[in-house]
C-alpha cells in the first residue's frame, strides 16, 4: 500500500469517528455550544384529552371551548376530566387551574413563543437508527437552537399517548418568566 492509499485509508476511517466525537463533544462538553438565553414565557396546556367532551381553541387571545361528541374510549364507565396547567419555565413545575381561571388568561396560540422557543417531543430510537427512530410521546422539551430543556409536565392518566398533553398557548400577560 503506497503513501497516498495509506492517507486515504486513515482519513476514510477517521471521518466517521470524527463525526461521532463531534456530536459527543457538543452534547457532553458544557459550554462548547452557546446555549443562549433561557425561556421567559410560561405556557398553558391541558391533559387527559383522551375522551374529552370539549374541543379547545384560542380565539382573540382567550381560551374557549366547544362541546363535541365524546370519543369512544376503551372503558366507557371512566370519565376523563380535562385538567389545565400553567407550566412555569423558570421553576420547571406545573400548577393546576380550572377552566374558568384558564379562560381569563391572555395567551398566544402560536407554536413559537415570543422569545422563539418551541415545545418538541423527545427522541426514542430503540431499533436501527436512522430507520424506525421516532418520537418519545412521554417526554417534551422546550427548545430554541442549541438550548434544550426537558419539561417536567403533568401527563395525566397515561403518558404514552400524545393527546394526554395538548399545548394551548403561551402566557403573554404581565409577569411572565
Amino acid at each position: 500500500m503506497d503513501k497516498k492509499e495509506r492517507v486515504l485509508l486513515i482519513t476514510g476511517l477517521l471521518i466517521p469517528i470524527g463525526m461521532i466525537m463531534f456530536i459527543v463533544s457538543v452534547i457532553y462538553i458544557p459550554g462548547l455550544m452557546m446555549r443562549g438565553e433561557p425561556p421567559k414565557y410560561d405556557f398553558l396546556y391541558v391533559s387527559n384529552q383522551a375522551a374529552s367532551e370539549y374541543q379547545y381553541s384560542v380565539l382573540g387571545g382567550k381560551l374557549t371551548r366547544k362541546q363535541v361528541e365524546r370519543a369512544q374510549t376503551y372503558n366507557q364507565s371512566i370519565i376523563y376530566e380535562d385538567r389545565f396547567y400553567i407550566h412555569s419555565v423558570s421553576s420547571n413545575k406545573s400548577q393546576e387551574l380550572s377552566y374558568e381561571e384558564a379562560s381569563r388568561l391572555r395567551i398566544s396560540s402560536s407554536s413559537k413563543s415570543p422569545d422563539g422557543f418551541t415545545i418538541v417531543y423527545g427522541r426514542r430510537g430503540e431499533v436501527l437508527f436512522p430507520f424506525f427512530s421516532s418520537r418519545d410521546y412521554s417526554s417534551r422539551y422546550i427548545k430554541k437552537n442549541s438550548y434544550t430543556q426537558k419539561l417536567d409536565l403533568e401527563f395525566g392518566m397515561d403518558q404514552r399517548y400524545y393527546y394526554n398533553f395538548r399545548f394551548l398557548g403561551w402566557l403573554v400577560s404581565d409577569g411572565n418568566g
Binding site: I20, I23, I27, V120, Y121, G122, G125, Y141, K143, T148
Partner: peptide
C-alpha cells in the same frame, strides 16, 4: 453510535 450518543434529547 450516533443514535446512542444523541440519547433522548432533541438537540
Amino acid at each position: 453510535l450516533i443514535n446512542y450518543v444523541l440519547g433522548p434529547v432533541p438537540l
